[in-house]
Computed example of a mutant assay.
Amino acid sequence: MKPAAIAILLLAFTSAAHAAPLIDFSEGPSVALSPLYPAQESKILGQLFTSYVKDYAKCPAGDAASGTEVILSDVQAIRGNFSSLSQDDLVLIFKSVDCNGGHAGEHANVALVRNGAVIDARQDLSTELAYKTLDTDADGLLEVIATASYSNMGYSGRWAQTITFKGGQAREISYVQGTVHYDDCGLDGKTEGEYDAVFFAGAAGAQPEQKNYRRACGADAKGFKFYSSGKLDKEL
């Protein structure tokens, strides 16, 4: 092979190996939020719930408590082309629970809104923070990458879900899903280390490729090294 051809081949390999990731979960959230006025929020929440409050203390007594939703977080509003290339949509994501639901009943909600009307919604997600909006499969439409964090007794983590709104329906899809960050370096005794998931673009129309990286804890930490491909095998 001629030297020039070898140089081109090496350049192509280097570029592919160091392609910028679509999502790097070692980084913080990156979402462009749109302002949601109180009257607008009230109108939309009124379409989602028969009755709602923003404080547990305002839950009605007796049987009326069941069916009244407590809004537990700020309502995040994200604008973009989510359902159609010709539609400018608003997506809301927030956390809530039924007044009688208790901590175990807490869940996240997403709603697709157009011209003030709720087109579709899901109220069974385990994530409540909009982490990133992204066209994960290069079809021109955005998906919402949503996350939630967990910490307990020396370890912490974050898991993710991807929600698509194609065709005006809110549904979860199977990629960019599951544990995306795991860190047990706060534990006493034997530890596994810190893990982060990174996603790279696949072919047009294909799901992104997940690669996971690990570094040891404490004095043994020498930077992240490749750990595995596919789903991260750490449960939270």
Rank of each mutant, 00 (worst) to 15 (best):
E194F: 03
A148K: 08
A4C: 07
A203R: 12
A16C: 06
T68R: 02
D220C: 00
Q177A: 13
E69G: 05
D233W: 01
V70H: 01
K211S: 04
Q87G: 01
N109H: 15
E106R: 09
F49H: 09
M1H: 15
A65M: 07
D220H: 00
Q161K: 06
L129D: 04
I6Y: 02
G205I: 09
N100V: 15
Y56E: 13
N81F: 09
D137A: 03
A20L: 10
R79S: 14
G80Y: 01
A12V: 14
G230F: 00
D188E: 12
G62H: 02
F200P: 02
S156Q: 06
V180G: 00
T68I: 04
Q210I: 02
G178F: 00
L141V: 07
R79D: 11
D88Q: 12
T162N: 02
E172P: 05
A216N: 00
S228L: 07
D139I: 04
S26R: 11
A130F: 03
D24V: 02
L129H: 08
D139L: 05
S174I: 12
P29I: 08
L33Y: 03
L187K: 13
L48E: 04
I44G: 00
V113K: 09
K234S: 01
G205H: 02
L187E: 13
N109T: 11
Y227D: 03
L92F: 00
A61Y: 12
N212I: 07
C217K: 02
D188W: 10
T162D: 03
T179Y: 08
G62Q: 02
I173N: 04
G178H: 00
E69W: 12
G202I: 10
L48A: 00
D63I: 05
A104L: 09
G67H: 09
N115S: 12
S66C: 06
I119A: 02
Y52H: 13
Y56T: 11
V110A: 14
Q40C: 03
D89P: 07
H107C: 09
V75M: 07
V110I: 11
D89T: 14
I6V: 14
E41F: 10
K211N: 06
I6P: 05
A65H: 06
L11E: 13
A146K: 01
D196R: 09
K190N: 03
A61Q: 15
C185P: 00
A39D: 09
G230T: 08
A170D: 00
E143V: 07
H103Q: 15
K43Y: 08
D220Y: 00
L141W: 11
F94E: 02
G167T: 11
I119Q: 01
I44F: 10
A111Q: 04
V70W: 01
F13M: 15
G223Q: 07
E41S: 08
S66F: 05
G101W: 09
K132M: 14
S126W: 12
D135R: 06
M153P: 04
N109A: 08
H18T: 15
Q161E: 15
G67Y: 03
W159D: 14
A7H: 10
R215K: 13
L10V: 11
A138S: 09
D184I: 10
G189R: 01
G62V: 05
A65P: 14
D184F: 04
K211C: 03
F200I: 06
N81S: 13
K231A: 15
H18K: 06
A19S: 07
A170Y: 11
G80V: 12
R214E: 01
